[in-house]
Amino acid sequence: MKRTLGTLTHPVIGDNPITVQILGICSALAVTTSLATALVMCAALTAVLTVASGLISALRHHIPQSIRLIVQITIIASLVIVVDEVLKAYAFEISKRLSVFVGLIITNCIVLGRAEAFAMRNPVGPSLLDGFGNSIGYSLILIVIGTIREVLGAGTLLGYSVLPTVAQGGWFTPLKLMLLAPSAFFLLGFLVWAVRAWRREQVEQPEFRIRRPAGGGRP
């Protein structure tokens, strides 16, 4: 039971796909200009990652080694197309704002990474939990960054005014930088720093050390 729960909770903070594995950065930057797009993206990734992990795990004894990656990609791509079509039908406005980034879930390393690293070697139940847990880990980061960026960048949250902006007669001048991609890099960097300051075990050992020449100056 404890192990089962661990499969679900470990990827949330302990092995978070974004802050620890540093995967899925592209979409984390692109869709977090507002919380609404971030939430829809999270839902899309959760659906794809969970179902893909389950399906690939169910087929794992039959997937031939030589074509396993292309099979995984085919399954993931089909699911992404279905999710994209559903969004276009039921959440048209948001799907337009997400543009290609739902389609790019296909190339999101988290999905293929979990398929290859976990679902291919574990039964369906744990694989579903692992997929779902990683989705929560991904969603958590997107929601945090999306909230900060929307509040500071536009003074709103989910479209509702939180900080009255100067344009509306309030006092808050929106930080336009927050709506640009670099700000997401900064926020992500601070977030990784904060998590690793709290959880020291996540700090990676340097792969090599730069030797400093004695006495300073150039070697």
Binding site: I63, V71, T74, I75, S78, E85, A89, F92
Partner: peptide, 27 residues
Amino acid sequence: TLAFALAVALGAAIVVSIATVTLRPLQ
């Protein structure tokens, strides 16, 4: 391997086609 590839392709094609066709009126 060939049979599996064929089955996966067929399965994926059916799923994608059903989704596209059923959702097209709404889109």
